[in-house]
Design a protein around this nucleic acid. Structure first.
Lengths: 220, 220
DNA sequence: ATTTATTTTTAGACTAGTCTAAATTTTATT
DNA sequence: AATAAAATTTAGACTAGTCTAAAAATAAAT
């Protein structure tokens, strides 16, 4: 049996280690889990004993294939529930994360597969993140951050790198949502801010924003 | 903060004490919670300290108003999720309980009220049990058990007293569902079995079944 | 190449919830 | 009313997860 806490650690290690591929430090996990390094040491030992992770003292921890499968399964649930909350229960994209943090731990194959079907097999969550299918396969889309977009080209918004409520609310107030068409007008070398056009209005966004907004080129 | 375990004990005490109105024994709780009496004693002390229950040594435990409110709130969530599972995700009525046992603990006012609206404010769950509204008010329907129904009268099925999977599957295999019209043909004094008509077929059900099926008289 | 700073681990203690076994109280029976 | 039976509580121990403080190992800086 896997516990709730084990699941949360596995998820954190997955995200911190670029989708379960890299080794993760004790302190990074402690920071993400809002706990102390000593607690993390205890838990990674346990995860290692249970074959969810590989761990050598002082050398960080990496998920095993088994650990990655657990992580992907949790992420699938999390993102499907987020779609449900937005599409069916009228939540806004900055409200879904907290509730999905709880829903993601409910373990019922039938529940999640029926939910998937009910939502018509969505491929992305409300923040543009890909939803793995039943077999754990992701369907990635080609995307770049606004900071690396070409001046003069036309894009559409396909995701965010920062899903914090404050960033999402900033986007709302600037009428930027998934699917919004964005033309890159100018990049200011001084502070790396970017001037973009949204329909007939032009706005300037900071480097911070430009690094957290994913775009995809639109064929003209 | 209330813990998951506290919530489950409160719910058990509520059900065992006829909806939170009567005092409940330690052993009854232990049986319902699949735990030992000594664990129950510890927990009821804790619930008492937290003002969810009144408890005097050796005298059983009763929910306080505060405890009843917690119980009703959990029951509201449980039953709304059951409706969701049946109506939207095509679960059968014998499959919903287990999953709802987990969903009922997710605490988000917005989640549950939006779910309620999405389901169009159902008044009863898939087993015919009433769903309390936002304020905790139940809308009871007048109902009697088949064992006490009048021979010669016509009823419809409005609920079950036993929600076990085996009983529900028995009803499925005999084509009895919520809303099914049932005429009472004969009561056998020898073993208290009851002969009923379902459409054009007549079947005999045991006393056990007759005591667990709720009916409401149909105006002819 | 040492010393210093940082990171990580260990040791021991705490809380929530559980258990077994023994002690106590209540209830039932003679 | 005394005794037996049943129910309940206490005492002490265990697991999961957490913490603080101290020790140990690694990484950085002189």
């Amino acid at each position: 049996m896997i516990t709730l806490t084990e699941e949360n650690y596995i998820k954190a290690i997955y995200h911190l280690g670029s989708n379960g591929n890299e080794s993760v430090n004790t302190n990074a996990i402690a920071e993400a889990m809002q706990t102390k390094a000593s607690s993390v040491t205890d838990m990674v030992k346990k995860l290692s004993e249970k074959n969810y992770a590989d761990y050598k003292k002082y050398q960080g921890v990496t998920l095993t294939e088994r650990g990655r499968q657990v992580a992907v399964s949790i992420i699938r649930k999390h993102r499907l529930w987020e779609v449900f909350l937005v599409e069916k229960l009228n939540f806004s994209w900055d409200e879904v994360h907290e509730v999905a943090e709880h829903l993601e731990h409910i373990k019922s194959e039938k529940l999640i597969n029926q939910l998937d079907a009910f939502l018509e097999f969505p491929k992305h969550d409300p923040h543009g993140d890909p939803i793995p299918d039943k077999e754990g396969k992701f369907q990635h889309i080609e995307k770049i951050i606004l900071a690396k977009a070409d001046v003069g080209s036309v894009y559409k918004c396909v995701g965010v790198d920062d899903s914090s409520s404050s960033f999402l609310k900033y986007l709302d107030s600037n009428k930027i949502a998934l699917g919004t068409v964005i033309s890159v007008l100018h990049k200011e070398p001084y502070d790396n801010s970017v001037k973009i056009a949204l329909g007939d209005t032009a706005i300037v966004v900071s480097q911070n924003v430009a690094k957290n907004l994913y775009l995809k080129k639109v064929e003209s």
